[in-house]
Design a binder for these strands. Structure first.
Length: 419
DNA sequence: TCTGGGGTCCTCTGCCCT
DNA sequence: TCTGAGGGCAGAGGACCC
């Protein structure tokens, strides 16, 4: 942690953690690509009966539309809303360029998602708030995207700062917003105390309900609440974490380049599927996609997990850990189908997913494959997968499909798979 | 209102081994 | 030989985030 160790001076000192958060990122990228969409109430997301809003423009937000809202509800609130399917490859590309801009200010950049990142500027010569303004100007001039910056001594407060720096939604677009919001060192507790506990990163609907039941509504009340009782109510680790944050204590450093711990793909169907055959075909396509991403990241994984969500929204997972890590779509699909066999799908499945965890570097996995030659890491499939990768590199991702994927035909839904 | 997709972290339970 | 405690691990599920 840095920035809060020099509070002897009479004037409050600046923290050295910045949180940079893009405004309505997906929608903003779409508006750059298609300027005629500017000023309209827009949403990126699935327009179907099972879709939700992934990102909403400020014009749409003025009607109460927000991300994660069911699309039908968004259309009720804002009948003129325009839905766009989303282009995640493009968003990732823009995100990579923006992260590059951030790295020109400090190498200590920790991306949190495609549209936000923490920066540690403790080694910079310029004051952190000035860096915040420079970042905003550069991201806006080079990419045409607006962003908000929070400045504080710790991550949690910097993140809260960027939220407070954002503009307000109005029917004619974003309005006001400081752009950069600083929580001065030494004033953290006074700043936090009157704010609602829901402002704490990690307090969702369930925890909020638990806290409200014990009469804790503000962060100040949480900070004063006995730690032991809090741990009994929300769990030991969670309780300790929330109590620390409420007291403005957040020792987590900015960690650049953290490796992914799992990779997954899932798909919600327009209508529930009831047979192992139909779901198996979906598993093949999803496994192929996950495996392809693993290989392009130079990773392989040992634990295969399937996720099954039924028509009543109840969700189960089944997993299996292999002797060695795999990155083959065929092997992944075989394991996934094996796991699905144990599940009764007759009631109807609305979503199925495949994930891989316990990831490791592929070079280690190749060594294991060479030494052991076991079934999970079948070397013949290794060659097939590499050939598939080469064809896709040359002719595009649709150039070759797995038998199951081809059998399954076009996807029935999924807003992140535009035609 | 009726809930996507891709992640992380935590807790609990059951099993195996010592 | 049987039993119980405790640790490690795998598997499952829940909560949360964007």
């Amino acid at each position: 942690m840095s920035g809060n160790t020099q509070s002897d001076s009479a004037l409050p000192q600046s923290g050295t953690i910045l949180h940079v958060d893009m405004d309505a990122f997906f929608v903003s990228v779409e508006q750059i690509r298609r300027p005629e969409l500017r000023g309209l109430p827009l949403a990126v997301g699935g327009p179907g009966n099972r879709g939700v809003v992934a990102s909403a423009s400020y014009e749409a937000r003025a009607y109460g539309v927000h991300s994660a809202m069911p699309s039908g509800r968004a259309r009720q609130l804002c009948p003129d809303i325009v839905f766009l399917p989303g282009d995640h490859e493009l968003y990732s590309e823009v995100s990579r360029r923006i992260m590059g801009i951030l790295r020109s200010f400090t190498p200590l950049v920790e991306p949190l998602s495609v549209d936000e990142a923490f920066l540690d500027v403790s080694g910079a010569h310029r004051p952190p708030v000035e860096i915040g303004h420079l970042i905003r100007r550069q991201v806006s001039s080079e990419e045409g995207i607006n962003c908000a910056v929070g400045v504080a001594a710790v991550k949690f407060l910097a993140k809260l700062g960027s939220k407070l720096a954002k503009p307000e939604p109005t029917p004619s677009g974003p309005s006001g917003g400081a752009g950069v919001f600083e929580v001065p060192v030494g004033e953290e507790r006074a700043f936090l105390s009157p704010r609602p506990v829901s402002d704490i990163w990690g307090v969702g609907p369930v925890t909020l309900g638990q806290l409200n039941r014990i009469g804790v509504a503000t962060i100040g009340e949480l900070a004063e609440f006995p730690l032991e009782r809090l741990e009994q109510i929300v769990g030991k680790a969670h309780g300790r974490h929330l109590h620390s944050l409420a007291n403005a204590v957040d020792p987590r450093p900015v960690v650049p380049d953290t490796a992914a711990k799992s990779m997954s793909r899932e798909e919600t169907f327009a209508r529930d599927l009831h047979t192992h055959e139909a779901l198996g075909a979906e598993l093949v396509a999803l496994s192929d996609s996950v495996a392809s991403r693993l290989r392009s990241a130079g990773m392989a994984g040992r634990t295969v997990t399937i996720k099954v969500r039924f028509g009543d929204f109840s969700t189960i997972t089944r997993s299996h850990t292999l002797a060695s890590a795999v990155d083959s779509g065929v092997v992944l699909a075989r394991e996934a189908k094996q796991l699905l066999k144990e599940v009764d799908v007759a009631p109807g499945v609305r979503l199925i997913g495949v994930g891989v965890s316990e990831l490791e570097d592929s070079s280690q996995r190749q060594l294991a494959l060479d030494l052991e030659g076991n079934e999970a890491a079948d070397p013949s499939w290794h060659d097939v997968d590499r050939a598939i990768d080469r064809i896709r590199d040359r002719f595009g991702s649709e150039a070759i499909q797995t038998g199951g994927a081809a059998d399954a035909g076009p996807r029935q839904t999924g807003w992140n798979r535009p035609n």
